[in-house]
Design a protein around this nucleic acid. Structure first.
Lengths: 339, 339
DNA sequence: TCCCTCCACTAGACCGGTTTATCATTGCCA
DNA sequence: TGGCAATGATAAACCGGTCTAGTGGAGGGA
């Protein structure tokens, strides 16, 4: 027999298709005895649901969509994505939900994909990452009426649930730590300025600088690449009155920056302290190892997935989940100023 | 109006559903004039195909499945996966094919997922990675009659297409390079022994050792984690007659090994040369930077995707695609022996 | 005993496409 | 002019489920 269908089950069990459907989906309408018999027959002939047929009737796709709008190569270089992805997937897997993944060039293409996935019923929900300032995707998912979770709030994301970490508090703790060590000239090599988390970090730095009366606390924007991270470092270290401490928005850039410093003959940590705003093996394997604002990105992914499943279960109830604040792990790349 | 269907188009264009279907799929059965009119109406009411309805009729799912059977966390740590994934996805995206991704615990679970995806028509094809010796998945995909591509042949993968790199030649080039530099005690910190590529590399090392009359050419197996890479290094360096060169099966382990060597006071490259059997920023950012067998993993992913699409286009025609052989890029971690 | 309700189950419509069988025209050739 | 094939289009079946309206029979209360 080709692929068994519920009609086959119905015939063998001597009942109707409807009864089989009820039995297989655990809903009332059949007696326990009949249900057991139907389930046994289904097992016997190794029946599997046909997702397409189910979806036609308006049922779940059992998949969640994730679109990444960055150059495809960065996915491979940036550890953050891979770890987030594995956390997301691990949690979804436990509910047999697959991840529908696509990498596109820009936000406009991302929105197109959302529209087509939703209209084709390919996914039950969407996970949005890299929340931007005035992000156009928010309006789109609200209009499409599809359950969604934003990774990286809180911000203006309307009625959409979010999962976020307190970047501001993390940045403040890093600056205060450096201030206690005697640093006054602190620089920040940040990511793309249109991202909300980049803005929050930059703003936190400015606020802390004002409060602690630190001069020259400035943020240099990059595209998150190691190349631009290195270039920013070179620029910072070449100028007069160079910083005694640099905070990098990713471990990749921090490692690149460390390389530049050593290459330029600036000893770390003796003349330059380095903090990475993200932790991974990368930060731990360098010499000196990097002081980092550490959080469990894998777990962050797990929490995002849980938030998604909560919204799927009850689309009307949205919520902002605050996750653990990245906390400073002091390693070898920071020390008191010599002064 | 709710979601427009072809029935809506048919009504507005004054034709039948069948004609609309023919027109939209560019097949004969309608005149050019009618086709143009139908397409215009479809455009007007912003019609999108309903993938589920299509799939019911036996059409394409426009998605390819990838299951990774390793602990979810390694996906985030191992740069190889992420780069492969981005290459795959980039190529698939160009044909609007999505990647259906799932991470599972073991091969058995992986096989279960294959069965359910295929029977639910969720995917048009499968990409298999981490080919093992006598891999049970091969028989499964052949039995399921689903187009598949194995990443990392050649080996016993029956009628399934494969994409592979010549690990053997790469390993030989690395060993010969070390031999020319005067190294005679060469060790190999490898990955899981059940993987075919691990075996090919170990065997190539043994063969080269025999041919070049090198004593003590041995392979130590690990699980690819940085922890086991470090442990293997510690073991190698602590013993008497320690190796003067170590080849690591991944850049992650190589970086971890480098850390151990420096920690144990073994200067690199003066007393120990290190080669990484995989290249990435990781290998380039360390000090000293790592000599590596480099290949474009992103491109490897692109080629795997192309092979997949070739099989999708013509399932009967399978082929083994050999990709570029990793070539040695000499950096700072290798030098002649002092002798 | 009659009527009503509840339960277990059935028949069949339905979801949105694809595909096949059929039909009406038209054009061509003998 | 008749016969036949090719063309353009239609109606209806079909894919494999879900879901709703409806049916028959058992049980309970008056």
């Amino acid at each position: 027999m080709q692929r068994p269908t519920i009609a086959d089950i119905a015939r063998r069990a001597g009942v109707s298709k409807g009864a089989v459907s009820f039995a297989l989906n655990g809903r009332p309408g059949v007696s326990e005895a009949t249900r057991a018999r139907i389930l046994r027959v289904a097992e016997e002939i190794n029946w599997r649901p046909h997702s397409a047929a189910r979806a036609l009737g308006g049922a779940r796709a059992n998949a969640v969509g994730l679109v990444i709008a960055r150059p495809a190569r960065t996915l491979g270089v940036e550890p953050f994505f891979a770890r987030l992805l594995s956390g997301l997937q691990a949690e979804f897997s436990s509910q047999s939900i697959a991840l529908h993944l696509m990498i596109v060039e820009d936000t406009q293409a991302e929105i197109e994909i959302y529209r087509s996935w939703v209209s084709e019923r390919r996914v039950d929900g969407l996970v949005l990452i890299d929340l931007k300032v005035r992000d156009p995707r928010i309006a789109v998912v609200e209009q499409l009426k599809i359950p969604a979770v934003v990774v990286g709030g809180p911000g203006r994301h309307g009625s959409v649930s979010s999962v976020w970490a307190d970047d501001r508090a993390a940045m403040l703790s890093a600056v205060e730590y450096l201030a206690v060590l005697g640093h006054t000239r602190i620089a920040h090599v940040s990511g793309l300025p249109e991202f909300q988390h980049t803005q929050r970090r930059s703003r936190a730095l400015r606020d802390a600088a004002t409060r602690l009366a630190l001069p020259r606390a400035r943020s240099l924007h990059t595209d998150f690449s190691d190349a631009q991270g290195a270039a920013a470092t070179r620029k910072l270290l070449a100028g007069a009155g160079r910083p005694t401490a640099i905070i990098y928005d990713s471990d990749l850039m921090a490692v690149a920056g460390l390389g530049v410093a050593l290459e330029m003959g600036v000893p770390v940590p003796h003349e330059l302290s380095i903090i990475s705003f993200d932790d991974s093996v990368l930060a731990q394997l360098t010499h000196p190892s990097l002081t980092a604002l550490s959080r469990d990105t894998y777990r962050f992914g797990v929490q995002a997935a849980q938030a998604m499943m909560a919204v799927l279960a009850n689309p009307t109830k949205t919520k902002n989940h605050k996750t653990e604040t990245p906390r400073l792990i002091a390693r070898e790349s920071t020390s008191p100023t010599r002064n």
